[in-house]
Design a protein around this nucleic acid. Structure first.
Lengths: 248, 248
DNA sequence: CGCGCTGTTGAAACTTGTCAAAGTTTGTGG
DNA sequence: CCACAAACTTTGACAAGTTTCAACAGCGCG
């Protein structure tokens, strides 16, 4: 096995990822696998890839071959309609998977764009399927991950279908907070990697509406906003905001 | 093999389904399996279950054990928030699968309700996983089905996030039309199984708005509505309606 | 150091929701 | 088989929320 730490010219495509060394066990696929099984998975995860901010990991229409595990960084996925309409369908962070949408037609159905310099593990899908046939735990975990994505999408549908602007933004901030927390970051303070327009697109709102909601939250002492820097001052307040549903 | 047509007391739970006889090959799981493989699947699909209109196939919170293939009938799934908000997340028809959301937490995360008398095949999930480990084609097909669900959800997010009332309803009708067509029914004439309120819930609109949009489509000669009976008179018109996006 | 992208704020327009009333269909029990 | 109640649908008038358009401020990249 090559020594990855040696100071030598780096061939990006060749650097092997090692699930066994990765500190994302609980977030990514290797959950609950034996040491031996993780080593098999190592063989399947073919390469790391680095992306600069703004770079596409894949584009809608491209052939689907692999799914990607985010090692570090931050992504958005978005869908484009023929008529030019566009919507952000999700924001993904460390330990989350990208590309599941491509399995269905063997073509990616959305664009994945790095919102900051990022690094992903490439997992050739047919290898993953192969290994899933051998390792029951892996198979089941993968199914759970796909199912979780479906449940998550239902949550977004709920948000888009039943919540008003400020509720949507509160839900969004609370969701980010919770995901940062799960990764060991502060639940109350973080930088947004996306623009107001991208937030709006995700939440089904115009950027101005997002901006106004931020301002309103600030006036009410719920958060402190300074551009992309967010501090949540009153988590309970944000949560309450969401349970005051309009009527029915 | 028992003769299912014999006039004898029927024990619902015992009647075996036979994928091999089923005319839903292309819609359900057995796509592209060999004869032999389909027979293995037969063994896994444990029982049929009949539901009356209004009956729940499963409820949110119940333990997840099986997924269901709709043999005949029509369902809705909906999600309930603690605060009483509710949203229909989908309508499912013959040949489609129900229950994929439950894999993630081993609990169903939504309710599935029959909107007309219906019949489903119960597919114990661990059996399906087992068989997937043996039959590559089945495994891959199942992954595609899950992925297709994710892509479908993205479509709904798009609809909820970027379209206005009439566009949403047009998209909804076109989608139904297309799915009926795929099942050999008329593309232009069908009965809605759901109420205006359920349509509204799915589309993120109030029932009055749905009703008004129907009326407007009728005035414009795009469709003929009589309660739940819909005839599409001008498919192109409906499609055009959707490409006149608001602005950007 | 300035230009462009991003974000903020205001006022007016528009879309959808709310409330209310009346019409229609469906299902049930007499 | 009819009658009545309940559920569903339609329509109108008004209110509320969000978008649109516009102007300006701020930050950051080159």
């Amino acid at each position: 096995m090559p020594n990855r730490k040696a100071a030598q010219p780096i061939s990006l495509a060749v650097v092997k990822t090692a699930c066994s060394n990765c500190n994302l066990h609980e977030l990514c696929l290797p959950l609950g696998l034996s040491h031996e099984e993780v080593e098999k998975l190592d063989e399947v995860v073919s390469a790391r890839r680095r992306l600069k901010r703004g770079e596409h990991l894949y584009r809608a229409g491209e052939e689907f071959n692999s799914i990607y595990a985010i090692r570090s960084g931050f992504f958005k996925t978005d869908v484009l309609l023929e008529d030019g309409r566009e919507q952000v369908t999700g924001f993904q962070m460390t330990g989350e998977l990208l590309g599941l949408d491509g399995i269905s037609t063997e073509q990616h159905s959305c664009n994945a764009v790095a919102l900051e310099d990022s690094e992903v593990c490439t997992i050739p899908f047919s290898n993953l399927e192969g290994l899933s046939r051998e390792i029951k735990t892996l198979q089941h975990h993968f199914h759970k991950v796909m199912s979780r994505e479906i449940v998550r999408d239902h949550g977004v549908m709920m948000l888009l279908g039943t919540m008003r602007a400020e509720e949507r933004l509160a839900a969004f901030l609370l969701n980010l907070s919770q995901r940062f927390t799960a990764r060991g970051y502060s639940p109350a303070e973080f930088y947004l990697r996306m623009t107001r327009e991208e937030i709006g697109s995700y939440l089904g709102l115009k950027l101005e509406t997002v901006s106004r909601a931020f301002s309103r939250f600030q006036e009410e002492g719920l958060i402190a906003v300074q551009q992309k820097h967010i501090r949540i001052l009153n988590i309970t307040g944000l949560k309450q905001l969401m349970s005051h549903h309009p009527r029915n």
